[in-house]
Design a protein around this nucleic acid. Structure first.
Ligand SMILES: [Mg+2]
Length: 363
DNA sequence: TGATAACTAAACATTA
DNA sequence: CTAATGTTTAGTTATC
C-alpha cells in the first residue's frame, strides 16, 4: 500500500509523460484505494465529457460563501458570439483533436447558434451600478494582519469588496493576463504583475498564490511555454502563451464568470438586440480583453455573491471595485502591459502577429 | 454519494 | 550557491 499514485518517476522525461494522464488516474487510483475524495466544484458537467484535464478551465466558483451560482443548473449558460470572432481560428482546429475536449467544442458551438444575438443591449455597462455609491471605494485599510482570505466568516463587516478574492480562477487570471499582453506571451513574472495590478487582493495575499499560478501554468494544457529562441534575453524562465487549441476553453470558463468578458457588440454590430431578454445575466466587461482597454481601462472586481444573480442576490452585496487603471508601469521592466494608448480598432480582430507556439503538438 | 474542477502546500528539478 | 522557474504529488474544498 501506499505507494504513491501512478507515476513516481524521477526523470524529466518520464515526468512529462504524466501530466494530464495523471489527473485521471489519480482519481481512479484514489478511488480504488477506497478513500476518495469527495467534494465537488465545478459547475458544468456537460462541458466535460470525462475529464477535461487537469486544472482545466471551466468552472469557476470563486469560493464565495453564498454559493448558489446563478445558472448552476449547469448547462446552457449561454455561450455565444464573441467567440466567433476570437475563436475563429481555434475553431477549425478544435476538431482535429478529438480526444477529450472536442466535446466541449461541440457544445459551445451548439449553444452559440442558439443565442446568437443575445443581449447586445448595453454591452459594457455593468459597471455602472456598482460604483460604490457611498463613496469610499475602499480605503486602504490596513493590509491586514492576519489571514485575509481563508474562510473568514466576516464578509459583511468590512465592507470593501476590494480585497475579496476575485471570482476568477487562476486559469482565468492567467488567461486574461496573457491575452492582455500585446504579444500574447508573458513571463511568469509579468503574469504576477498583471494579476497584482488588476486585483489588489493579491497584493497583500499571503503567499502561495504565485505557487498556484505556476502550478497552473504547468499543469493546464491551455498554457504553453514558448521558449526556444533566446532572442529576448529574458532572464530565467520563458514566455508563456495560450495554446490556441484550447483557447476557447478558457473563454468559456471566463464566460461563466460573474462579470464575464467578451462582449456582444463585437460580432454582430447591429443586429437586433433586444430580442430576447436573456435576463440570465449579462455581465460584460472584463479586464484583459480588448474591451477592457476600450473602456478606458476600467476594471471591476466582483464582490462575492453576485453570481447568484438569478436566484438570490443578496441585496446589493456587490460592490465591485471599479478603479481606473493607472497607467503606471508597475515596476517590472520586462513588463509589457503598457496599456497601450488608444488603438484598438472596431474590428476587434487586431491580432496580426500570432504567437504561434505549438512547437510539437504531441501530447 | 460520487465525480470533477479548483485551491493550496510542498517536495523536487532545472536553470540563470 | 541562491533564487526564480517549472513539474508533479497530494490533501482538501466546493458544487453538481
Ligand atoms: Mg501547461
Amino acid at each position: 500500500m501506499l505507494g504513491r499514485a501512478p507515476g513516481k518517476s524521477t526523470t524529466v522525461a518520464a515526468r512529462q509523460k504524466y501530466n494530464h494522464k495523471y489527473w485521471r488516474e489519480r482519481e481512479i487510483y484514489r478511488r480504488e484505494r477506497g478513500r476518495g475524495s469527495s467534494g465537488q466544484q465545478k459547475d458544468s458537467k456537460e462541458t466535460a465529457p470525462g475529464w477535461m484535464g487537469p486544472t482545466m478551465p471551466l468552472s469557476k466558483k470563486a469560493q464565495s460563501p453564498s454559493s448558489g451560482l446563478g445558472l448552476t443548473h449547469g448547462l446552457s449558460p449561454l455561450y455565444r458570439e464573441a467567440e466567433a470572432a476570437d475563436l475563429s481560428l481555434s475553431l477549425s482546429a478544435s476538431f482535429s483533436k478529438a480526444e477529450d475536449e472536442e466535446l466541449t467544442s461541440l457544445s459551445w458551438l451548439h449553444e452559440s447558434t442558439d443565442l446568437l444575438n443575445s443581449f447586445s443591449h448595453s454591452g459594457l455597462r455593468s459597471v455602472s451600478p456598482l460604483q460604490d455609491s457611498d463613496g469610499h471605494p475602499l480605503p486602504p485599510h490596513s493590509p491586514t494582519s492576519s489571514s485575509p482570505d481563508p474562510g473568514d466568516p466576516s464578509p459583511y463587516d468590512l465592507a470593501m469588496g476590494a480585497n475579496r478574492k476575485p471570482p476568477y480562477s487562476f486559469s482565468c487570471l492567467i488567461f486574461m493576463a496573457i491575452e492582455d499582453a500585446p504579444s500574447k506571451r508573458l513571463p511568469v513574472k509579468d503574469i504576477y504583475g498583471w494579476i497584482l495590478e488588476h486585483f489588489p487582493y493579491f497584493a497583500s495575499a499571503p503567499t502561495g498564490w504565485k505557487n498556484s499560478v505556476r502550478h497552473n501554468l504547468s499543469l493546464n494544457k491551455c498554457f504553453k511555454k514558448v521558449d526556444k529562441d533566446r532572442s529576448q534575453s529574458i532572464g530565467k524562465g520563458s514566455l508563456w502563451s495560450i495554446d490556441p487549441e484550447y483557447r476557447h476553453n478558457l473563454i468559456q470558463a471566463l464566460k461563466k464568470t460573474p462579470y464575464h468578458p467578451y462582449s456582444p457588440g463585437l460580432v454582430t454590430p447591429s443586429t437586433s438586440p433586444p430580442g430576447s431578454p436573456q435576463a440570465y445575466h449579462s455581465p460584460p466587461l472584463w479586464p484583459g480583453s480588448p474591451f477592457f482597454r476600450k473602456n478606458g481601462g476600467v476594471l471591476l472586481q466582483v464582490p462575492h455573491g453576485v453570481i447568484q444573480n438569478g436566484s438570490r442576490i443578496r441585496s446589493q452585496s456587490l460592490f465591485p471595485v471599479i478603479r481606473p487603471l493607472p497607467i503606471s508601469p508597475v515596476g517590472s521592466r520586462t513588463t509589457a502591459i503598457k496599456i497601450c494608448s488608444g488603438r484598438l480598432s472596431d474590428s476587434g480582430r487586431r491580432c496580426s502577429p500570432l504567437p504561434l507556439p505549438l512547437p510539437t503538438p504531441q501530447r
